[in-house]
Simulated scan of single mutants.
Amino acid sequence: MTRVAGPAHPEDGHQLSLNHQLSLNEMPAVPLTGLEEILRESLHGANRYPDPFSRRLTEAIADLYSVPDHEVVVGPGSAAILQHLIQWAAAQPCDEVIYARPSFDAYRLVVNSAGAKPVEVPLKEHRHDLSRMLESITSHTRALVLCNPHNPTGTAIDNVAMLAFLREVPEHVVIVLDEAYHEFASGQDTLNGPEAYHDLPNIVVLRSFSKAYGLAGLRVGYALASRDIAHTLRNRLLPFSVSTIAEAAARAALTRRPEILRQVDRVIAERGRLTEGLRRQGWDVAPSAANFCWLPLGARSPAFAAAAARQGILVRAVGEEGVRITVGEPQATDALLRCAAQFAAESAGLASA
């Protein structure tokens, strides 16, 4: 597994002064105005347990996508739902789960937790290698996870290629479409999972309130799946797993979705500014449909992350493959661009010395 490096520290070991947190793909600000008032109101019933199955939130999600309530499963973050899904689908040591490398760290963790075998397929030009993924499917394959847009590269699979791929996957394999960053792919030609899962009963679509909705600290996500798979997942999740506060915030966010999407548009615009700024400096930047950018720096990745950290900017170095940079406020973009220019100049100086 490719590990994601933690925050780098100066050589003297002193604690850094953090100015810009660009390592966790968070929204730069809470996109929902008045959230504090909503949270305070929800605390009035803090002495009571939450709804064990988050029924009001389930109904709101079902209404958003015009699907039956019984096809929606709400849980404490999409990663927690994924964990239960893999534990169900791949419960034997000989069972295999396919996903890309590098990918979201949780994939390998949940596969190992289930006692199954991870099958990691390297990316091809920063994208899922769909042909090689199909070739990797065996009689032992129980699940295949596609992160679209992909984390950490931000690339997205085009609609035609995705549908063709999905139809080639055997029915005995559960396909997990992790669409945590889908809202940031606005205007791009990529699959919208909620519109496709009905035609392929082995698909489970994962969505999150942590990214575009800016509720990462409250831990709530959901799955869309066929009646049978959704029923299985719902029975595996512990009751009361989504807090009253989290459900109240998520319901409010759905009722004010246009406000959320306006904030998403601002992030997309800032992503464009960050991408263009880096490319003007000569950096190779993968095309992103998420709220982050990917610099395929190879062996220079840890050094870049360390240089940024010394200037109070935290980014994620993914082993010696690349650096993932979250899109932040405009001042964070400015600071990152200055840091990148300085790193390039210093690297050029060392190379010519």
Rank of each mutant, 00 (worst) to 15 (best):
E11N: 14
H14N: 15
S17G: 09
S17Y: 15
N19F: 14
Q21K: 11
N25T: 15
T33L: 14
T33V: 13
E36L: 11
R40I: 14
H44C: 11
N47I: 13
P52R: 04
F53A: 12
Y65I: 00
H70N: 13
V72M: 00
I81G: 00
L82I: 06
I86Q: 04
Q87S: 12
W88E: 08
E96V: 12
E96D: 09
V119K: 02
H126A: 03
L146R: 00
N148G: 01
D158F: 05
V160L: 15
F165H: 09
L166T: 11
I175F: 10
D178W: 05
P194H: 08
Y197P: 01
P201G: 00
P201L: 04
V204T: 06
A212Y: 05
A216C: 07
L218K: 06
S226C: 14
A230N: 00
N235Y: 02
N235V: 01
L254T: 10
E259H: 13
D265P: 01
R266V: 14
R273V: 05
Q281N: 02
V285I: 07
G298W: 02
A303R: 15
A308V: 08
A309T: 07
A309F: 07
L314I: 10
R316Q: 12
G322K: 10
V323H: 08
V323D: 13
R324D: 11
V327M: 07
A332D: 13
L337K: 03
R338F: 09
Q342T: 12
A344K: 14
S347N: 15
A348M: 08
